[in-house]
Simulated scan of single mutants.
Amino acid sequence: MEDRIKQSFGKQNLMQTLGAELVSIERGMVKIACSFSDTLTQQHGYFHAGVATSILDSACGYAALSMMPEKAEVLTVEFKVNFLRPADTSKLIAIGKVLKSGKTLVICEGEVYDEAEERLIAKMTATMITINS
């Protein structure tokens, strides 16, 4: 499972563009980090919401994939994000967790924290679908 997720993550050009990295992989939980860069900011100098959303979507997706059969792939069906504060930090830490895993759909919850994992920046609920390859 861990190797499959690492290989898939390595194919995501967006994650490479953002400089995101896999921090940890467990069954039902994945953590992804992204360090600050001026190229990832919005007009006030904070991380852009799109960066936080992208790494959180991937964290939830890979958490879902960790619960799926070996030959399955994952796609996002939908998500909702609430931003609780500006992403004024040197690193974003996105944690995706599976709430309920079914045959076809996997419901996930995700959170984005600051570099110390003390300040909650955003929360996501997401639905992922199993794609049989």
Rank of each mutant, 00 (worst) to 15 (best):
L14F: 05
G19H: 13
C60T: 05
F83E: 00
L75I: 15
L75W: 13
V51Y: 01
T76F: 04
Q42G: 05
L22G: 11
A52R: 02
E21L: 09
K31V: 12
Y62C: 02
E73A: 13
L22H: 12
V74D: 07
N13I: 07
F83W: 10
Q16V: 11
L65S: 10
Q43A: 13
N82W: 03
G45K: 05
T41H: 06
T39V: 12
G61E: 03
S58R: 12
H48P: 02
A52D: 00
K71R: 15
L22N: 13
M15N: 10
K71H: 15
Y62K: 08
F36N: 12
L75F: 15
N82S: 10
G28E: 05
A72F: 11
A63M: 03
F47N: 04
L84R: 04
C60A: 04
G45T: 09
A49V: 09
S24Y: 10
Y62F: 09
Q16S: 13
F83M: 02
G45A: 09
S90A: 14
A87W: 02
A52Q: 07
K91L: 09
L56Y: 03
T89K: 03
G45R: 06
L65N: 12
A52H: 02
E26F: 12
V23M: 01
A20Y: 03
D88Q: 15
G45N: 05
Q43P: 02
G28V: 08
G61I: 00
S90H: 12
L56M: 14
E73P: 00
R27T: 07
H48V: 01
R85T: 14
Q42F: 00
S58V: 07
A49R: 09
H48E: 01
S35T: 14
E73L: 08
D88W: 07
I25P: 00
S54N: 01
T76M: 00
C34D: 02
L56D: 02
A49F: 00
T53A: 14
R85Y: 03
V30F: 10
R85V: 10
E70I: 12
S90T: 14
P69C: 13
A49G: 15
V81C: 10
A64Y: 06
E21Q: 14
D88R: 15
L65T: 05
A87Q: 06
F36M: 13
A59Q: 05
V30E: 04
L40A: 05
G45Q: 09
E78S: 03
G50C: 04
A64K: 08
L14G: 10
D88S: 12
D38Q: 15
G61M: 01
S90N: 15
A87D: 06
A72N: 13
T17L: 14
T41G: 01
H44K: 08
E26V: 10
D88E: 15
L75Y: 13
P86Q: 00
L84Y: 07
S35H: 15
Q43E: 11
C34S: 00
M15H: 05
T89E: 00
M15R: 08
R27Y: 00
A63Y: 02
I55R: 08
E73V: 01
A72S: 15
I32M: 08
F83Q: 02
E26I: 03
T53I: 10
M67S: 09
T53N: 13
A52G: 13
Y62S: 11
G50P: 08
G61Q: 06
A63S: 12
E78Y: 05
N13D: 13
Y62M: 08
V81P: 04
L56N: 08
Y46R: 11
L56H: 01
C60D: 02
K80Y: 07
K80R: 14
